[in-house]
Design a protein around this nucleic acid. Structure first.
Length: 158
DNA sequence: GCCAACGTTGGC
DNA sequence: GCCAACGTTGGC
């Protein structure tokens, strides 16, 4: 299977690129996804070696904060059956995990966030979910040509 | 804080 | 299974 590309959204108040950079081996689990469509992607489609845009939502500014790589494919999100977790789901059990997570490892923290505004103004990114209003999915596939455009943007913009 | 766009829930 | 009400997300 060819390497795929993804955009993962997180509110930096909850988990930021700085938090990932400060994690052991700059690696962390991407837990707390509680949306079935995103869950299905994490469980079935996100594979080790896939590349990820780390997106800060509800931030100043909102946009791409860094690049990561998937270091472990989907496995049960144990925070779901931890009553102390913010993302506790009373229906989840170890033998019926419901929710899944992956591990991500930091590749590059950008010196500054590439703003959503710039993505919206860039030709070729019009069909990206993140540039369309109301696209709330927290795990979004990124097309290879979009990845290429964004990599070039990152070189030119920063 | 506002509000549009979703997703989920629950009565029927 | 429909759909209205409600809750959440997330840009602005």
């Amino acid at each position: 299977m060819a390497k795929r590309y993804w955009l993962f959204k997180s509110e930096p108040d909850c988990f930021s690129i700085e938090d990932l950079a400060a994690s052991p081996d700059q690696t962390a689990h991407w837990d707390g996804v509680r949306n079935y469509q995103a869950r299905n992607l994490l469980r079935d489609d996100v594979k080790k070696g896939d590349e990820v845009l780390f997106y800060h939502s509800s931030a100043k500014p909102t946009g791409i904060a860094g690049l990561c790589v998937v270091s472990r494919a989907g496995y049960p999100d144990h925070t779901a059956w931890d009553p102390d977790s913010e993302h506790f789901d009373p229906k989840a059990r170890p033998d019926n995990p419901i929710w899944y997570m992956v591990d991500v490892t930091l590749k590059k923290k950008l010196p500054e966030t590439l703003p959503l505004k710039v993505l919206k103004e860039t030709a070729g990114l019009e069909e990206m979910m993140v540039t369309q209003r109301g696209a709330r999915l927290s795990v979004q596939p990124v097309r290879p040509n979009e990845w290429k455009i964004i990599r070039k943007l990152l070189r030119d913009y920063l």
